[in-house]
Simulated scan of single mutants.
Amino acid sequence: MILPPDGTKACCVPGRGAVAGAAPAPMAQRAHPSVASVVVAIPGGQGTIGTDAPVFRADGEGPARRISLRPFRIDAQAVTNARFAAFVAGTGYRSDAERYGWSYVFRAFLPPGAAVESPPQTPWWAKVQGACWSAPEGPGSSTADRADHPVIHVSWNDAAAYAAWSGGRLPTEAEWEHAARGGDRKARFPWGADEPDDANAGHCNIWQGSFPQSNTAADGFAGTAPADSFAPNAYGLFNMCGNVWEWCADAFRVRSLSSMAKARNAVAASAGERVMKGGSYLCHESYCYRYRIAARTGHSPDTSAGHTGFRIAYDG
């Protein structure tokens, strides 16, 4: 795990770093009626990616850059458990978490004293055998009461396979940021500039309290929230920040000539890392302040965890 210069760590799990065996074969592209969703048309033109006020310089958040985009479309919500279940039912697809036999679960969601292994730098994560998209906390858990929540424990490989099957694709990082800003190039959050915190908890699903010891769940959710929770942004998109991290199409890279950036890029390239955006229900300003539009991170394409999902984009 690469840490920012100020020592602040990310809430994210360590990446797996290498694919176990060949990546799943991509599904044939086709629009499938069982995955119908609200799709929003995003105007093309000039936009902005990044920020001139980066919080984590090592992540490559800045500087702000002007971009030109063609019109495209994007799902109003992250892909839900119900939609992913339709994909699996129609294809027999096995996710990376299922192929590996485990995925990372937030330890607080497990029974006290559960005998599970944790990464040394992030002891709040637990490597749970049998955890996957359909059993988010491991054997005995299910998504029966979470059909409208975003699917989790999905890798970039899984997201790309679903996207191809559904007739779409993963958004680029530039498209994701452009859509999240809702037409306001200077927007810090999808809803504007209002800073969410432990008391001001009405904008998004993030952590409230002292991470990782105590979550007051002032926003109403300790884990994932339904994919259409909270107010949408000006384009009508839900939960572009908070709730779950979202995979993008791009390879992760820091645009800098510094020695730190070169080292980070070497690690990312060797693992084939892909960009993730938006932060999750585990983000808090005191620790993982990455629920900002410009914030970003990267992980290997076979990495999965209980706070990682995706949404689909489509050519205009």
Score class of each variant (00 low, 15 high):
P5N: 08
P5I: 08
G7H: 01
A10F: 11
G17H: 13
A18C: 10
A23F: 07
M27H: 14
M27I: 00
A31C: 03
V35N: 11
A36S: 12
S37V: 01
V39N: 01
G47N: 01
G47H: 02
I49R: 13
D52Y: 08
A53E: 15
F56V: 00
R57T: 15
G62P: 07
A64D: 03
A64K: 10
R66V: 12
S68P: 01
S68M: 06
R70I: 00
P71F: 09
D75T: 05
D75A: 05
A76L: 05
Q77L: 01
V79Q: 05
A82Y: 02
R83Q: 15
F87M: 09
G92N: 10
R94M: 13
S95D: 05
A97N: 08
Y100R: 15
Y104M: 13
F106Y: 13
R107Q: 10
R107L: 08
T122A: 07
T122G: 02
P123Y: 02
P123G: 13
V128Y: 11
G130R: 10
S134W: 14
P136I: 07
G138F: 01
G140N: 05
A144P: 07
D145W: 02
R146F: 11
A147T: 00
I152M: 00
H153I: 12
W156I: 09
N157I: 00
N157E: 14
A159I: 09
A160K: 14
A160P: 00
Y162E: 01
A164P: 02
G167Y: 09
G168P: 06
R169Y: 11
E177P: 07
G182V: 04
G182Y: 12
G183W: 03
D184A: 02
A187T: 04
F189V: 06
F189N: 01
W191I: 05
E195T: 14
N200L: 06
A201T: 14
C204W: 01
C204Q: 04
Q208C: 10
G209L: 08
G209A: 01
Q213D: 12
N215C: 09
T216W: 10
A217I: 08
A222E: 12
A225E: 09
A225T: 07
P226F: 04
D228E: 04
S229F: 07
S229C: 01
P232D: 02
N233P: 03
A234F: 03
G236Q: 06
L237I: 03
N239A: 08
C241L: 05
W245G: 03
E246F: 05
W247M: 13
C248W: 03
A249T: 02
A249R: 15
D250Y: 06
A251R: 15
V254W: 05
S256Q: 02
S256E: 11
A263L: 08
R264W: 11
N265S: 09
V267Y: 10
A269P: 01
G272P: 04
M276L: 15
G278K: 02
G278D: 03
G279C: 09
H284G: 05
S286N: 14
Y287F: 04
C288F: 12
R290T: 14
R292V: 01
R292K: 14
I293W: 10
G298V: 07
H299L: 13
S300Q: 11
D302A: 13
T303N: 12
T303F: 12
F310A: 00
F310Y: 11
F310R: 08
I312K: 04
Y314M: 08
D315G: 02
G316Y: 00
G316C: 03
